[in-house]
């Protein structure tokens, strides 16, 4: 059975809770005020999809500030999945989602990327500035899914990552995502391969040699 590796990136404004979401998911912990992420940071987690398929998730946390886009940008095109995260108590961060979406779309070939919209900090219900309906409306207009999460109360965090992973896997199965040369969003590692780290391109067409 082949093992899969999916690269997933989290995007969204500063302090929407990207790092907290990742920490909750990968370490099961919640730190109230984590240091601001500078550049790109890395997490990973194994996930098993129902039919016994092992998927290694490579999770990239990014700095929300515009200045860091010259770095984070280079990671977009090598991601198969994107979590677009906004803070449900911060309307600005919601309004910026569309920019983040286009930011990825302008660099990545659309067919390859699976998005999921995340409304974060759902535990702060009373402060919510964006209704579920409004967020769902945006998600529908972009043709992507939407999940409300809270790292603090550990609500729907696993679900969000599972949903995204499942969607990617389905798309892969249905050949909506194709493995292209030089692209690291998805790797399929067959058991026979002696060196799983080695990534060389698959030939695009039959060669003359």
């Amino acid at each position: 059975m082949a093992r899969h590796m999916f690269r997933i990136i989290l995007l969204g404004d500063s302090t929407v809770g990207k790092s907290s979401l990742l920490r909750r998911y990968t370490e099961g912990s919640f730190i109230p005020a984590p240091c601001p992420t500078v550049g790109v940071e890395f997490y990973s987690k194994m996930m098993e999809l129902p039919p016994g398929i092992k998927v290694k998730l490579q999770l990239w946390d990014t700095a929300g500030q515009e200045r860091f886009r010259c770095i984070t940008r280079s990671f977009y095109r090598n991601a198969v999945g994107v979590l677009l995260v906004f803070d449900m108590t911060n309307r600005k961060s919601f309004e910026h989602i569309i920019e983040w979406y286009h930011e990825v779309a302008s660099i990545q070939i659309m067919e390859k990327v699976i998005f999921l919209l995340i409304g974060h900090k759902s535990d702060l219900k009373s402060d919510c500035k964006i209704s579920t309906e409004e967020a769902e409306g945006l998600a529908a207009s972009l043709g992507i899914g939407f999940i409300e999460t809270s790292a603090k109360s550990n609500t729907n965090v696993d679900l969000a990552f599972e949903t995204l992973t499942n969607t990617i896997y389905e798309a892969l199965k249905n050949k909506e995502i194709d493995l292209q040369e030089g692209w690291d969003g998805v790797k399929v590692i067959h058991k026979r391969t002696c060196n799983p780290q080695k990534k060389r391109r698959k030939p695009q067409e039959k060669c003359q040699c």
Binding site: R73, S74, R77, R200, P203, Q204, C207, C209
Partner: peptide, 23 residues
């Protein structure tokens, strides 16, 4: 691209490649 017969061999498929400018 890697040769299907021998992964040590890279086959040339000549065409211009544009450079992406990123970090």
């Amino acid at each position: 691209c890697e040769s299907p017969q021998d992964k040590r061999i890279l086959l040339v498929n000549c065409q211009n490649k544009s450079l992406s400018q990123s970090f």
